[in-house]
């Protein structure tokens, strides 16, 4: 690489963090398998993996933040961050499109096909094309579950997440108008709303498993329900973690009205997760 190019691009130092991240993933995978196979100490191995992951996040984020605050990220690096964000979101859209697509395929196409006159008489006599369903051949074998309704916790969670969209936008305006108190307050409220959302989601899952017979194994309804809402919940967890980092950075005096890519990316991500929830609320919980 010529000198002119090294002037233009910032080359980070060789980093230990991808290696640490790989160790975390290995421990988590082994611990997860051990837990599922009920091998002794599986939970501890899994927990060790999570601990190493947090150590990696703390170290890696810190390094990137120090580089940013030291002014090492020039325009070229800024543009590459923004484009990376764009492609990351593209992959996220495809990810959720696949799961929403599975739900659409099941409800609109495969369930009616399995219940139509010819297929029904040959394969699954008496199977009715109704939704929710565990699927033909499964409903008779004791898959007796109650589907999750929209009113109650899901509606409250929608309101919580939409409110968090308002508070993060308020914080965003605070940053643009150089009002740090508004930025910090807005972010703190958003984090709090995200945490309450996750707690209610955990309660809903516990209720589904213990009271409603609604599990990941409850046929196609249970599978699509938990895949969609579970992965969304995981995104809320990731978003909340990133918002906490933004909150701490805001308290530390980072970001200006013109220089705040990290905040803007996290704020946008939160809006994205919020929109996915609105679609989930309408398509998964409501149109049952």
């Amino acid at each position: 690489m010529s000198l002119a190019q090294t002037d233009k691009y910032y080359l980070p130092q060789p980093s230990i963090w991808p290696f640490v991240g790989s160790v975390a993933l290995l421990l988590m995978a082994v611990g997860g398998v051990m837990t599922m196979r009920e091998i002794d100490n599986g939970g501890w191995v899994l927990l060790a993996g999570v601990a190493v992951l947090f150590y990696m996040m703390f170290g890696w984020f810190g390094e990137v933040i120090r580089d940013s605050e030291a002014g090492r990220y020039n325009k070229q690096v800024d543009a590459s961050f923004r484009w990376s964000m764009g492609w990351f979101i593209f992959s996220e859209v495809m990810f959720f499109a696949a799961f929403f697509g599975a739900l659409f395929y099941t409800r609109v196409l495969s369930v009616p096909w399995l219940a139509d006159a010819e297929t029904g008489s040959l394969l699954w006599e008496g199977f009715q094309a109704t939704w929710p369903t565990a699927g033909p051949g499964l409903t008779k074998d004791g898959f007796d579950f109650t589907p999750m309704g929209a009113w109650g916790i899901p509606a409250i969670n929608t309101l919580l997440l939409l409110s968090s969209g308002v508070t993060v936008t308020w914080a965003h305006w605070g940053l643009k108008k150089s009002n740090r108190t508004q930025l910090i307050l807005g972010l703190a409220m958003t984090v709090a709303l995200g945490v309450v959302f996750l707690a209610l989601q955990a309660y809903e899952y516990e209720h589904a498993y213990s009271e409603m017979g609604l599990t990941l194994g409850a046929g196609v309804y249970g599978a699509t329900f938990f895949m969609l809402t579970g992965f969304h919940g995981f995104h809320v967890l990731v978003g909340t973690t990133m918002l906490i980092v933004m909150l701490l950075r805001s308290i530390a005096g980072h970001f200006t009205a013109e220089h705040h890519f990290a905040f803007e990316a996290v704020s946008w991500y939160w809006h994205f997760v919020d929109v996915v929830w609105v679609l989930l609320f309408i398509l998964v919980y409501w149109l049952i």
């Binding site: 325009k75 800024d78 543009a79 923004r82 484009w83 964000m85 764009g86 979101i89 939409l162 969209g165 308002v166 936008t169 965003h172 305006w173 643009k176 013109e258 220089h259 705040h260 890519f261 803007e264 990316a265 704020s267 946008w268 809006h271 919020d274 929109v275 609105v278």
Partner: peptide, 28 residues
């Protein structure tokens, strides 16, 4: 549009936050 402005304006305008405000208002 907010994502488009996030990439294009590089934090120098208010177009991203304006579009996000529209987004949250419509959802509510």
């Amino acid at each position: 549009s907010a994502l488009y402005y996030l990439i294009k304006d590089k934090g120098q305008s208010e177009r991203t936050v304006k579009m996000l405000t529209v987004r949250v208002a419509l959802s509510l």
